[in-house]
Amino acid sequence: MVSQRTAVAAVFVVNGGLYGAWAARVPALATQAHADPAALGLALLGPSIAMIITAPLAARACAAWGARLVIAVALAGACLVLPTLGLADSVLLLGVALAALGALMGTVDVAMNVAAVAAVRELDRPLMPFFHAGFSFGGLLGSLGAGLAAALSVAPARHFCFVAAAGLLALLGTVRSVPGERPGPHRKTEGSYRAVVFRKRLWLLATVALCAAVAEGTCAEWSALFLVRERALTESVAATAYSVFSVTMALTRLFGERVEARFGPHRVLAGSGLVAACGLTVTAAVPLGAVAYAGFAVAGVGLAFCFPVAMALAGDAGRRSDGSGGERELGFVTTVAYAGFLGGPPMIGGVASLTSLTVSIGVVGLLAALITPAALAVRERGTARENATPRELV
């Protein structure tokens, strides 16, 4: 049987691989479904909206049945739904399949973070950045496999069947070691009615996750166009900017345990916000293509720790006396972050239409800078929480 650390990391890798596999085949899926850009845009809204809806439901499911069971059911379901994308021959069918896949992958996303928090508590090691590095490398692996499949003219349906089979095998080999057993009756009800939406500490962590999500989504969806239109780089060179951003983020996350153990989660968050803000601000301010390229790489370093550390702190905010808990808190922060992934890129497009892409990137740099004061305020709330009475913890 594999270790808890390996099992949780495997879940992150598989979920990232599923995302990378289908996202990189969107051009082929659009051709197969006869979708124009407008129709494709509507279809791609489906998974994001589904993830926002299912995140709080997934948190409740983890609290009721345990993260392990939720991961087993939802991840297996995602693997089985993935091949249906390759069979969608209309925009409607493609949209429905994407929404179903998004709902299942969003459920896995919440549950795997709950399991990761449980592993961090059990092992007493700050491993959240390491686990999220698994998602980054999984997405990279999935996209590289998709590129190879496209180069070999492999149909999406066949490609997705292979990916699904690999994901199911990885799940079968590791799921028993995933932490998050089904809780007993006394743990199901303890704290289940706590009004998480009124807790200031969670809103601060949600702010961190939201700003990080907007910044990451901007780098993913606007970096190439920015480099082509504003910095006069070729499309082939500009297209690799997000790859550099992703690889930089993934490699940085591998050092997360050492960095967090050395400086603590709140300092890491505060410093990460400054690094990300500097990278994006320099990208917008200096009119040189090479500097902009390096700026996106620096932004990847800064954003690497923001989401995983925020998730770890959210789980800690809901920790019960027996060492369990945090499911609803993770669900809340994740839901807000998904809203950032969904609404951030269109917002940036709106700003760009009124001004320019350069101004938009600068605005995102300012948003990234908000991570720092939010992280420092989280630390202050955490200190106050330690000295508070039970009535003051809400």
Rank of each mutant, 00 (worst) to 15 (best):
G134E: 04
K188Y: 00
I71G: 06
R194N: 07
V178R: 09
A111M: 07
L82G: 03
L140G: 05
F130K: 08
A116N: 04
N113F: 07
D109Q: 05
A88M: 04
L168I: 14
A149C: 11
V114H: 01
R121F: 03
G77K: 08
V178H: 06
L98F: 04
A151N: 12
L104H: 04
G145E: 04
L172F: 15
L93D: 01
P156A: 12
L168W: 07
L92A: 15
P129D: 11
A150Q: 13
A111K: 09
S90P: 05
L104D: 00
C161A: 15
S143E: 10
P185F: 09
N113A: 06
G147D: 14
E181L: 12
A115G: 05
L75Y: 04
L98G: 01
V120H: 03
C79Q: 05
F135T: 10
A195G: 00
H159D: 07
A97N: 08
D124L: 03
E181Y: 02
L92I: 11
T84C: 01
F198N: 11
M105R: 04
V96G: 01
I71P: 09
L171D: 05
A151R: 14
R121D: 13
V197W: 15
L75C: 02
A74L: 06
V96N: 00
M128L: 13
A64K: 13
T189D: 12
Y193H: 15
L171E: 10
K188F: 00
T107N: 03
V108D: 06
H186A: 15
G95S: 13
L87K: 10
E181F: 00
V175E: 10
